[in-house]
Structures are given as structure tokens and as C-alpha cells.
Lab assay of single mutants.
Amino acid sequence: MGFKLLSKLLVYLTASIMAIASPLAFSVDSSGEYPTVSEIPVGEVRLYQIADGVWSHIATQSFDGAVYPSNGLIVRDGDELLLIDTAWGAKNTAALLAEIEKQIGLPVTRAVSTHFHDDRVGGVDVLRAAGVATYASPSTRRLAEVEGNEIPTHSLEGLSSSGDAVRFGPVELFYPGAAHSTDNLIVYVPSASVLYGGCAIYELSRTSAGNVADADLAEWPTSIERIQQHYPEAQFVIPGHGLPGGLDLLKHTTNVVKAHTNRSVVE
């Protein structure tokens, strides 16, 4: 069995187990497998329904001669939608809004960016022009300005110390501490036991640490421990890039980060 097929099978099995364990909360999309990078042309966006009122959005972007996937989250909030992270750029984010209108038909009224990198804030200006209120932590807003990236308009308070959590509509926002970046936030959907790890969490097929220019490698494993301790009931975990899975993604990420750190020390 090929690795790609095995990865998709694991996603399907995880979703099936969740649907059985929580039949009222989960209505997993039966329309197909989780979209992969090879299936999404740059400039297009796919939506994948995880649970009743919960979707991931998947886009792709060219970077350094390669094409990478990027995940975000959409959560229903009454007759409105909360968006977590842009679709990595203005063109993708405009396509995301169009796809949401086509498939869901509810307005996106608020959006949260989970850290300051372009795959999370690139497209904020498109959201703002569409009347979406954009939010991020003060740290993310400051770092985005320093980096020359787009800056969300509103500040999220109460997320300055490791372990801080605040309720934001249908989700809980959690600051686990520094990891992929010093400002990275985690998003949890309690009604569906869905954990969105953003770039602080890796997919299972990833074996290298990737972009760690703004990471705190020493603190990252401790931050992941905080996530595990705060959300032990999480059933569906979405990484910032690639295929979702279960809580095993947290341990896998820790292993990859520690291996990278150990290699760096040896070198």
C-alpha cells in the first residue's frame, strides 16, 4: 500500500471513529477524501466538511520552486461564519470567499490569524475590503508590521502568557507558548472536538522541520505538551499544512522538532 493511500485511509478511519463516538456532533463529509496538494491548482481553494458547521479550507501556493498546501478553518456561528487564517495570499483568499459563498452561503463576518507569517495573514486586506472584521493577538499584529505583512485590524486580548485561553464565538483560542513562531495560536472547536494546530503542528508525513527561522526550538516541545494537557479530548487535529489526523500529530511534531534540534547540535 502506497504512503499517500495509507495517509488518506488514516484520515478516513479517524473521521469514521469520530462519527461513531459522537453521532450528534459529527456529520463528516462523505463526498470524498481530504484534498491534497496535487489536486488543488494554485489560485483555487477546496472546502472539506469535518463536522456539522465545521470545515477546513485548503489552498496551495508556490514557494521556492515548489507547491505547498495550506489549511485553515471555518466555523459556523449562528447565521454567520468565523474564518481562521487566510488562504495564503490575496488571490487565494478572494477564491476562498467565493467558494464559501458557493458552498455554504453564509457571510464571513470575523477572521482570526493564528500567527504573523504570510500563509496566515496574506489576504487580510481582501477580507477587510469584503467587510470582514480581522483579528490577531497584539504580538501577531506587531510582528506582521515588522515583517511588512498585512496586519489584522483588531487585537485579541488575554493571550499574552503561555497557557492563556479565551473564548471567541464558537471557538476557544489558546496560546501554548512559542513553537513554530513566538505568537502562534491554537484554535479548538469544543462542539466538535476539532483542534486546529496551525503551523505549530505537523502532518504525519512530514519528517523535516522546514521553516524554523522564527521558531523557538527549545520551547516548542513544552508548548505541545500544554496543548495535549489542555485538549486531551480532541479527536480531529488539523495541521497548518497537509493531512489531518488525531492527537498523534502532536507527538510526531515533537519528535521531528527534537530530531532537528539534535542534528543542529551535532553539526
Rank of each mutant, 00 (worst) to 15 (best):
residue 237 V to L: 06
residue 57 H to N: 04
residue 121 V to R: 02
residue 244 P to F: 06
residue 148 G to L: 05
residue 243 L to M: 14
residue 61 Q to T: 09
residue 184 N to D: 06
residue 129 A to C: 02
residue 203 E to M: 03
residue 173 L to C: 04
residue 188 Y to T: 00
residue 218 A to I: 12
residue 266 V to G: 14
residue 240 G to T: 00
residue 194 V to N: 02
residue 71 N to S: 06
residue 244 P to Y: 06
residue 105 G to Y: 08
residue 191 S to T: 13
residue 207 T to G: 12
residue 33 E to M: 10
residue 102 K to L: 12
residue 1 M to V: 06
residue 177 G to V: 03
residue 126 V to Y: 11
residue 243 L to Y: 14
residue 162 S to E: 14
residue 149 N to G: 11
residue 62 S to P: 08
residue 267 E to V: 05
residue 138 P to I: 09
residue 32 G to Q: 11
residue 168 F to N: 01
residue 80 E to H: 09
residue 60 T to M: 14
residue 237 V to D: 02
residue 69 P to Q: 15
residue 151 I to E: 02
residue 136 A to G: 09
residue 216 D to E: 08
residue 136 A to R: 03
residue 210 G to Q: 07
residue 192 A to S: 11
residue 187 V to H: 02
residue 5 L to C: 15
residue 43 G to C: 04
residue 9 L to R: 15
residue 42 V to G: 14
residue 172 E to G: 03
residue 84 I to H: 00
residue 136 A to N: 03
residue 239 P to G: 02
residue 242 G to M: 02
residue 50 I to A: 06
residue 169 G to V: 04
residue 230 H to I: 08
residue 223 S to H: 04
residue 90 A to E: 13
residue 232 P to H: 08
residue 15 A to H: 10
residue 200 A to C: 05
residue 174 F to D: 01
residue 76 R to I: 08
residue 263 R to T: 14
residue 19 A to F: 15
residue 11 V to A: 11
residue 143 L to G: 03
residue 68 Y to T: 13
residue 213 A to W: 07
residue 238 I to D: 00
residue 206 R to Y: 07
residue 224 I to T: 05
residue 123 G to K: 05
residue 255 N to F: 10
residue 201 I to Q: 02
residue 143 L to S: 05
residue 16 S to I: 12
residue 157 E to H: 11
residue 53 G to C: 05
residue 196 Y to N: 03
residue 56 S to E: 14
residue 246 G to E: 08
residue 248 D to E: 14
residue 131 G to V: 05
residue 55 W to M: 01
residue 231 Y to A: 00
residue 27 S to G: 12
residue 93 T to P: 01
residue 4 K to F: 06
residue 8 K to M: 14
residue 118 D to K: 06
residue 98 A to G: 14
residue 42 V to A: 15
residue 9 L to G: 12
residue 21 A to Y: 14
residue 49 Q to D: 11
residue 244 P to K: 02
residue 179 A to F: 05
residue 33 E to C: 07
residue 125 D to R: 08
residue 76 R to K: 08
residue 224 I to Y: 01
residue 132 V to I: 14
residue 48 Y to V: 15
residue 196 Y to F: 14
residue 225 E to W: 11
residue 72 G to E: 01
residue 163 G to S: 07
residue 156 L to Y: 00
residue 92 N to H: 03
residue 62 S to G: 14
residue 180 H to T: 01
residue 200 A to P: 01
residue 47 L to M: 09
residue 93 T to E: 00
residue 252 H to L: 04
residue 78 G to N: 11
residue 64 D to T: 09
residue 87 A to V: 03
residue 34 Y to V: 09
residue 73 L to Y: 00
residue 143 L to R: 08
residue 42 V to H: 10
residue 237 V to W: 03
residue 103 Q to P: 06
residue 138 P to V: 09
residue 91 K to M: 15
residue 262 N to T: 12
residue 16 S to K: 08
residue 37 V to N: 15
residue 56 S to V: 15
residue 209 A to E: 07
residue 194 V to F: 04
residue 96 L to H: 03
residue 250 L to N: 02
residue 223 S to A: 10
residue 208 S to I: 12
residue 166 V to Q: 10
residue 255 N to S: 12
residue 128 R to Q: 13
residue 204 L to K: 14
residue 219 E to G: 07
residue 160 S to R: 12
residue 195 L to M: 05
residue 126 V to N: 04
residue 138 P to S: 09
residue 229 Q to L: 13
residue 88 W to T: 00
residue 221 P to F: 05
residue 147 E to V: 13
residue 55 W to E: 00
residue 6 L to D: 14
residue 20 I to K: 15
residue 115 H to I: 03
residue 112 V to E: 04
residue 181 S to E: 01
residue 99 E to A: 15
residue 138 P to D: 09
residue 17 I to C: 13
residue 147 E to T: 14
residue 247 L to P: 14
residue 210 G to H: 05
residue 101 E to M: 09
residue 204 L to G: 12
residue 114 T to P: 02
residue 77 D to Q: 05
residue 173 L to G: 01
residue 237 V to T: 03
residue 165 A to E: 11
residue 144 A to W: 02
residue 221 P to H: 06
residue 225 E to Q: 13
residue 120 R to C: 05
residue 40 I to Q: 07
residue 254 T to R: 12
residue 126 V to L: 09
residue 70 S to L: 02
residue 191 S to M: 10
residue 194 V to M: 07
residue 75 V to L: 06
residue 223 S to C: 03
residue 210 G to V: 06
residue 237 V to H: 00
residue 104 I to N: 06
residue 178 A to P: 14
residue 236 F to W: 13
residue 246 G to I: 04
residue 168 F to L: 08
residue 197 G to H: 01
residue 193 S to W: 09
residue 265 V to N: 11
residue 24 L to Y: 15
residue 227 I to T: 09
residue 237 V to K: 00
residue 222 T to Q: 14
residue 231 Y to S: 02
residue 158 G to D: 08
residue 181 S to A: 06
residue 5 L to K: 15
residue 146 V to P: 06
residue 72 G to Y: 04
residue 6 L to R: 09
residue 8 K to S: 12
residue 192 A to T: 10
residue 33 E to R: 12
residue 238 I to R: 01
residue 147 E to S: 13
residue 29 D to T: 10
residue 36 T to C: 07
residue 144 A to S: 08
residue 150 E to S: 03
residue 40 I to E: 07
residue 210 G to E: 08
residue 3 F to S: 10
residue 162 S to N: 11
residue 46 R to N: 07
residue 119 D to T: 00
residue 138 P to C: 05
residue 234 A to E: 02
residue 66 A to Q: 15
residue 49 Q to R: 14
residue 175 Y to C: 04
residue 188 Y to M: 04
residue 185 L to V: 10
residue 51 A to E: 09
residue 249 L to H: 02
residue 10 L to P: 15
residue 65 G to Q: 10
residue 171 V to Y: 03
residue 117 H to T: 00
residue 194 V to T: 06
residue 252 H to R: 03
residue 26 F to I: 13
residue 157 E to Y: 11
residue 129 A to Y: 15
residue 131 G to T: 06
residue 158 G to S: 07
residue 108 V to Q: 00
residue 224 I to V: 11
residue 137 S to P: 07
residue 1 M to H: 02
residue 265 V to C: 05
residue 161 S to P: 06
residue 210 G to R: 06
residue 28 V to N: 12
residue 67 V to Q: 15
residue 173 L to S: 02
residue 253 T to Y: 03
residue 52 D to V: 11
residue 71 N to M: 00
residue 12 Y to C: 12
residue 60 T to Y: 09
residue 177 G to A: 03
residue 39 E to P: 09
residue 233 E to K: 14
residue 1 M to P: 00
residue 71 N to A: 04
residue 3 F to R: 08
residue 123 G to N: 05
residue 120 R to H: 07
residue 4 K to M: 12
residue 37 V to C: 08
residue 215 A to M: 04
residue 104 I to P: 01
residue 171 V to R: 01
residue 69 P to C: 07
residue 85 D to Q: 00
residue 213 A to V: 13
residue 146 V to W: 12
residue 39 E to I: 11
residue 220 W to L: 03
residue 179 A to R: 02
residue 80 E to Y: 06
residue 225 E to M: 11
residue 64 D to F: 11
residue 103 Q to V: 13
residue 144 A to M: 03
residue 149 N to W: 05
